[in-house]
Amino acid sequence: MDGRSVRWEDHKAARRKIVLDSAMRAVDSEGPDVGVQQIAEYARLPRSVVYRLFRERTDLDDQVRAHIVSSMMETLAPALVPEGSVEFAVNRAIHTYVEWIAAHPNLHQFLSSGPKRPARAAQSLDGVKTAFGLYVTDVIAAGLATLHLPGDRAEAVSFGLVGLVDGAVNPWLHHGEGRLPTNELADVLSSAALDVISGALRDLGVTLDRQAPLGQITGDIRPLLGN
Rank of each mutant, 00 (worst) to 15 (best):
V27R: 04
S198C: 10
A14V: 03
S70Q: 13
D166F: 15
V49A: 07
A14L: 15
A156H: 09
V169M: 10
L204M: 13
G114M: 08
I221P: 02
G219R: 07
L164T: 03
D195I: 13
E9N: 08
P171E: 03
T130E: 09
A193R: 05
K17Y: 11
E83W: 08
A23P: 09
L204C: 04
V86K: 00
P223R: 01
P32H: 09
Q63F: 08
H95R: 09
M72Q: 10
D138M: 14
A89I: 00
F54I: 08
R153Q: 11
G167W: 05
A93D: 06
R57H: 07
G133A: 15
I197Q: 02
G133N: 11
T58K: 07
D21M: 11
N183I: 12
Q123F: 13
G163T: 05
L180D: 15
D61Q: 04
D59C: 13
G84P: 12
W100Y: 11
G205E: 08
L144W: 07
D209H: 13
H108A: 10
G219P: 11
R7C: 04
Y51Q: 06
N91L: 12
R44N: 10
S190C: 05
R65L: 10
V86T: 05
L204Q: 07
R120K: 13
S158R: 02
P223L: 12
L111Y: 01
G178K: 14
S113A: 10
E30L: 15
D138R: 12
D28Q: 11
I18W: 08
I197F: 13
P181L: 03
A102Q: 03
R4I: 12
G205A: 10
H175Y: 15
G160D: 10
L45D: 00
A40L: 11
H95C: 02
M1H: 03
A119P: 04
V139C: 06
P82I: 06
R4L: 10
V36C: 01
M73L: 14
L149D: 07
V19L: 05
A168N: 02
E74P: 02
P78D: 06
G178F: 03
P118I: 11
Y51P: 02
I68D: 05
R16K: 14
R47Y: 06
I101L: 04
R120F: 14
L225K: 00
V136T: 02
D28M: 01
S191T: 15
D61N: 07
G127E: 04
S29I: 05
N227E: 09
L20Y: 01
Q123G: 10
E9S: 12
N227D: 07
W8G: 04
S22N: 01
K12T: 06
E99T: 07
S190I: 14
V165G: 04
I197S: 03
P46A: 08
V90K: 00
V27Q: 01
G114E: 06
F88Q: 04
L161T: 00
V188R: 02
D152V: 15
S70A: 14
G199E: 07
D10R: 12
L149S: 05
V128R: 01
V169T: 02
A141F: 03
L224A: 12
N91F: 11
E155A: 13
T146E: 10
E177T: 13
A103G: 05
